[in-house]
Design a binder for these strands. Structure first.
Ligand SMILES: [Mn+2]
Ligand SMILES: [Mn+2]
Ligand SMILES: [Mn+2]
Ligand SMILES: [Mn+2]
Lengths: 218, 218
DNA sequence: ATAATTATTTAGGTTTGTCTAATTTTTTAA
DNA sequence: TTAAAAAATTAGACAAACCTAAATAATTAT
């Protein structure tokens, strides 16, 4: 059984290789995980020996099929637990992530399968991220950053692409949560911020915020 | 924050000092935890330094108030998770323990308080063990080993005093679970076994089994 | 194309939690 | 009450997961 630490390495590599789907560098990974790059090199050599990553000196690292399978399994568990915390225990959007970071490391196939069923086989987590099924496949859908909408367009919030706790708290307080309808009132060109209408209120969103809210065009 | 390993040491010391409430010996603890006694000595010296145990060379060990507080908190989490697994995820009596051994190490006060409320503030776990509240106090009740009943007495099963998986599986298969009514049909003196009537069936129970089923006399 | 800079790896430590083997203390038996 | 046995501790090693400092490779700027 993999240690929690190794599981976290796999998950980190997985998350980083979502964006740029090439090999990722030791420095990138070191920065992301808050460890020194010497430790990364060390661990990559161990994981290579366990056939969890494909690592070549000075050329970065990429998950093997086995490693990716493990990482997706963690993502599955993480997101199902997040649904549990929100739906059953009334946690808020911004609170669940840190607790799910612990719960994702519980090992019990039966537990996670039963949990999935108990939650009604959800396909999306509280942040709008897809929940992999047992085989690791996730649903996809068309979604855009709110920032890409033009003046006058209407849309529905599907999720976020940033899990910073304060960002989520801000959205909660602004009542910009999943399912909410919005209308772009003005798009300001001088700083790429937008003014939207939501909950019958006008709300100004910075470029960064608008980029990390994901919507479906209505 | 205490490591999972240290948490397990505290819980083990706690469980062993339930029975004989004196200091417990390093050998006892070593046997219970499946580690060598040299490792126990080593760890006891560290825990002493953390004010979690009171350890004196060659004289065994006992929890401090702080150590006991931590241990009871683990027991609380363990038993609440066991209730969750049985009540919400349809785990059986014999399956929950190993999973709860993992779940008890999740750190989140909010999680456990919400879970408790979600489960309806249960006072007893699926094995009939009391669930400590936030302050660490547990309910008590009169209960006896089935083995102490006399021929002709009737009783209700309250729980078990052994968490061996095969013992619990045997009880499940015999449908001798919590709440079941039983009547002592015969008590055999030659081997201290008993024959009981439960679920309209006659069932023979060895001395050991009868000692580890806890009942309330009706 | 060489030098300077940056990225990466290697070498050598540290802490935690374990082990085995050797030593010391305590308990039990003669 | 000494000798033998058992229990407990100490000493020394090891793996995992980190670190810092030094060495090497790759990149970039001149
Ligand atoms: Mn998350
Ligand atoms: Mn999420
Ligand atoms: Mn248990
Ligand atoms: Mn229990």
């Amino acid at each position: 059984m993999l240690s929690i630490i190794i599981e976290n390495y796999l998950k980190s590599i997985f998350h980083l290789s979502q964006n740029e789907n090439n090999r990722i560098t030791t420095t990138e990974l070191a920065k992301y995980m808050n460890v020194k790059s010497a430790s990364i090199t060390d661990m990559m050599q161990r994981l290579e020996g366990m056939d969890l990553v494909d690592y070549k000196k000075y050329q970065g690292v990429i998950l093997t099929n086995l490693g990716r399978k493990r990482a997706i399994d963690l993502v599955r568990k993480h997101r199902l637990w997040e649904v549990f915390l929100v739906e059953k225990l009334q946690f808020t959007w911004s609170e669940v992530h840190v607790v799910a970071e612990q719960l994702e490391h519980i090992h019990s196939e039966k537990l996670i399968d039963r949990l999935e069923h108990f939650l009604g086989n959800p396909k999306w987590d509280p942040h709008g991220d897809p929940i992999p099924d047992k085989e690791g496949t996730m649903e996809t859908r068309e979604q855009f950053p709110l920032a890409e909408l033009l003046k006058g367009e209407t849309a529905t919030i599907l999720g976020v692409s940033l899990d910073d706790e304060n960002f989520l708290k801000f959205l909660e307080e602004s009542e910009l949560t999943i399912g909410k309808k919005i209308l772009v009132n003005t798009a300001f060109s001088f700083d790429d911020s937008v003014q939207i209408l939501a909950n019958k209120q006008l709300i100004n969103l910075s470029k960064k915020v608008a980029q990390h809210i994901l919507v479906r065009k209505d």
